[in-house]
Design a protein around this nucleic acid. Structure first.
Lengths: 109, 109
DNA sequence: TCCTTGATCAACTGATGTGTTGAATATAGG
DNA sequence: CCTATATTCAACACATCAGTTGATCAAGGA
């Protein structure tokens, strides 16, 4: 999955909050409703509802309908898009470091 | 490399800005000074200087001294810490999806 | 239909973030 | 010493964000 710049903005901003990261961790173990996600936190359900909207706008989760409930589901492909963005630059940097080391070793011999 | 919650806050928040992401991309190709990093952007160097401080506080870059210059260097291990945090939950979710699929297939037979 | 539960909308507050301008600091070089 | 260059600090404006309370909407069950 490839993402545009706005999607990266929203995704990284979504992860830049401990409450939303804890929700991601919870959802990795299975779907959950607003009430279930709210349970561990000392904040109102309205606040939790908005955290969920942030995650959904980022594409990190989707929502289904189950009667009155609106269960949330993690979207692994969206997470994968972030890691591949980061890995791109990490790997490039590590390659450069290895080339530098090789050059140093060559010069000292 | 393992990071604490505050470090994750700062790192993801640092990446939630297109200017800082472009700086990461630039630095993956080699060290650069404030002036070099500022060049592509229509903002003041003071603003660029603060973007750099944000990246440094997140541990994503380090800085050295070269006369008046303060070159920035990307820290691949810090990027790796982020991808492994994300991958942890992505892989857990994908494992769960595969178990679900297996169960469905078993029940339909 | 009435009441309860799950979830969201609207308006407001305080904190944080990103940008500006202007002044200050530090190092290199004549 | 004096000046130019690289960078940072300080103070301010403006926008966005996370939280609150109170009202509203939607679906289920007696």
């Amino acid at each position: 999955m490839t993402v545009d710049d706005d999607q990266l903005d929203r995704s990284f901003a979504a992860l830049a909050d401990p409450v939303r990261r804890a929700m991601i961790a919870r959802l990795s173990r299975g779907p959950a409703t607003v009430n279930e996600l709210a349970e561990p936190f000392p904040i109102t359900k309205q606040a939790v509802s908005r955290h969920i909207q942030v995650l959904e706008a980022a594409g990190l989760i989707t929502r289904t309908r189950d009667g009155q409930r609106r269960p949330c589901h993690l979207v692994p492909a969206a997470l994968e898009a972030l890691t591949s963005w980061i890995d791109n630059y990490r790997l490039e940097t590590e390659r450069r470091f290895r080339r530098m080391e090789a050059l140093l070793k060559e010069n000292e011999s």
